[in-house]
Design a protein around this nucleic acid. Structure first.
Lengths: 168, 168
DNA sequence: TATTGTTATACTCTATAACTATA
DNA sequence: TATAGTTATAGAGTATAACAATA
């Protein structure tokens, strides 16, 4: 294993190669990973997964969703979603009902309790965002968001809703 | 398993919840993950790992490095680094020599062949960057880089060398 | 006893496959 | 036969632990 902490603290030149840090893509990758990890840990600490939040957020946008469409929209594996929904259902945050037109399908919907939990999640997310974006002012955050949206849309046009171009 | 591709193509509303896309942190996480995956795959295709590149890039910056310092600098586990160096050494890209002052240590250095391979890697990286950053012009790329550096430094001040503040 | 590099083990995540019930 | 949801299995990647040589 690596030395606990002592080693890392006393080395003053622990900074990464300039060649890597000079690359926006490298920074994007590393920062993205770190940010994701931090967010996941925060949700974990609250007894949930970050995926739980994304499911609730999707369900809150109105459309009655079936498990397949939820999984596809969130780019999750359908078998992965099963466990997430199990967790949410156990706590009464979502409901699964058989689709009467096609009894293979489950229609998933948000409960009142789920809506309240979503509000809690939003506060958590806001806290995390504030922590991560602390060094940037409002204008800079908007700029960052705009740049990221354009990169994301370039990779997968279907990912970002069209009306979200340069908003904050 | 998920349906191969057919399903996904015919669904027009496959875009993510607005609530998530509106968040810079969410975009950062998702984009970072995708970008990292893409870069790793490109290196894999070339018969290497992206970590191989980062090791060579570090060694090229001059300082004679020992395995512990390499691992710490790149934030890799020391046991992970062993395998990476094995791969690089087998192909004659780096050399491991015992440190005569402290025979526990290995001093790792770049060979002439390693320098040439590094040049190849740099072209590969350039190609990947161009692909990912395509939608942004030079100014925008510099802006993005500056914003990311500031976020990265905020998370870990030791990560980014001080003189890399607002350069491209 | 502590540290360097190394090897071995365990664990988490995810991707794939297999199964059921419906169509 | 194909699809929706579910369960089970396997593989990659990573973290942790154990080890031999040297200090």
């Amino acid at each position: 294993m690596n030395p606990p902490t002592a080693e890392r603290l006393q080395t003053p030149q622990a900074c990464l190669p300039r060649e890597l840090v000079a690359s926006p893509v490298f920074l994007l990758g590393r920062l993205g990973y770190g940010v994701k990890t931090q967010a996941m840990a925060a949700f974990e600490e609250a007894g949930f997964s970050a995926y739980h939040y994304s499911v609730l957020a999707l369900l809150d946008e109105g459309v009655r969703e079936t498990q397949a469409t939820i999984a596809d929209t969130l780019r999750l594996d359908r078998s992965q979603l099963v466990g997430l929904l199990d967790g949410l259902e156990e706590r009464g945050l979502v409901e699964r009902r058989r689709d009467l037109n096609d009894r293979r399908r489950h229609v998933v919907s948000l409960t009142a309790l789920g809506k309240r939990q979503l509000a809690v999640f939003r506060k958590l997310v806001q806290r995390i965002e504030e922590e991560i974006l602390a060094p940037l002012d409002a204008d800079e955050r908007a700029t960052l968001h705009d740049l990221l949206v354009r990169l994301a849309r370039h990779r997968d046009p279907s990912l970002v809703p069209p009306e979200l171009s340069a908003s904050a």
